[in-house]
């Protein structure tokens, strides 16, 4: 794989990581007053996809959507402002962290209800199909969402109509504090199960960004050329608590050993190692990348903090679309 490409993957992941870490740092000032689900540890899948799709492709996501929004090209400033509840936010303060949107880049929204955006993504794929375009639709979901009936119904329809959709399941082993073993039968392979519905299905290491990239390059090509839906299950891990800025290993629902094992396979560290193994002098380049990202992030936070709140009366407008 070309070095430039890997550097780009590194940059996108690192940007997501540093944004999320800044949110975690600022959160206890209690100015971002909405439930916030961080993607720290889960950056690779989003970053890899972003290098394989076009701006006019669609994506939808979940409560844990920051990484997906940024990877699709969503405006950083608008996202941070939204989390701060400002009028310059991507949903004008109506939606918060769990309702991100940037239509300019085909990011068509996230939902706070598990499974809720899955059929929306399929509907966007249907629209591409009806409009005779070669756009594809990317549906991000968690392992928990595969337990909702709407997931099966959506995959079924996508397969039935051979729609240009990729279901991207980030299996981080948990739904809130509930491990897979209290939710799904032992030995279940989500990708195998979905394969039997008729979607081309794969699973892969979601912390190895170059591996994710290879998987996406093939699957995006296939879906775009009309060969029908894909389902990809990526194994990955969230570091922070389900919702909020803190670590929660003290609660005991997952073991410190498990956490440490995953941290040793940190997607950004793995990628960095891969780069430096080929060329130690890249370290300066990486530092430079980090520096540029940090400046962008600090600009975005300043923008958000200095933006005005919406007027309280705004709450009582915007219910219906005007003709």
């Amino acid at each position: 794989m070309k070095q430039d490409l890997i550097l780009n993957l590194y940059r996108i992941m690192k940007r997501i990581r540093l944004v999320e870490e800044e949110i975690a740092l600022q959160y206890p000032k209690w100015e971002m007053r909405c439930p916030t689900h961080l993607s720290i540890g889960q950056e690779a899948v989003a970053a890899a996809l972003s290098m394989c799709i076009r701006k006019d492709d669609f994506a939808v996501s979940t409560h844990r959507g920051h990484a997906h929004y940024l990877a699709k090209g969503g405006s950083l400033k608008s996202m941070i402002a939204e989390i701060y509840g400002k009028s310059t936010g991507c949903s004008r303060g109506k939606g918060g962290s769990m309702h991100l949107i940037d239509k300019d880049v085909g990011f068509m929204g996230t939902s706070a209800i598990v499974g809720n955006s899955i059929p929306i993504g399929v509907g966007l794929a249907l629209s591409a199909h009806l409009n005779f375009t070669d756009q594809i639709s990317c549906v991000f979901l968690g392992d928990g969402a595969t337990e909702e009936g709407v997931f099966y119904e959506s995959v079924n329809f996508a397969v039935l109509k051979n729609l240009p959709v990729i279901f991207i399941c980030e299996n981080n082993l948990y739904s809130v504090y509930s491990p897979l073993e209290v939710r799904q039968p032992k030995g279940r392979k989500i990708s195998k199960m979905v394969e039997s519905i008729g979607a081309t299905s794969l699973s892969g290491d979601g912390n190895d960004v170059t591996n994710c990239y290879r998987i996406f390059r093939n699957s995006v090509n296939s879906v775009r050329s009309g060969l029908g839906p894909y389902f990809i299950e990526f194994f990955t891990y969230r570091y922070k608590e389900h919702c909020g800025h803190e670590y929660d290993n003290n609660l005991g629902y997952r073991s410190v050993a498990e956490f440490e094992t995953w941290k040793k396979r940190d997607p950004i560290e793995l990628c960095k190692k891969q780069l430096l193994e080929t060329d130690l002098s890249l370290i300066r380049k990486l530092d430079k990348i980090d520096q540029i990202i940090k400046e962008e992030i600090s600009d975005a936070f300043l923008f958000a903090q200095n933006s005005p709140f919406p007027e309280p009366q705004e709450a009582f407008s915007g219910l219906y679309a005007d003709s």
Binding site: R33, C34, G85, K86, G89, S91, G93, K94, G95, G96, M98, H99, F309, P310, E311, P312, Q313, E314, A315, F316, L319
Partner: peptide, 16 residues
């Protein structure tokens, strides 16, 4: 409650 969804922003829930 008003016939509007509850908005998210701190500023928008003041009179909700």
């Amino acid at each position: 409650c008003p016939d509007f969804p509850e908005p998210t922003s701190y500023a928008l829930t003041k009179d909700y």
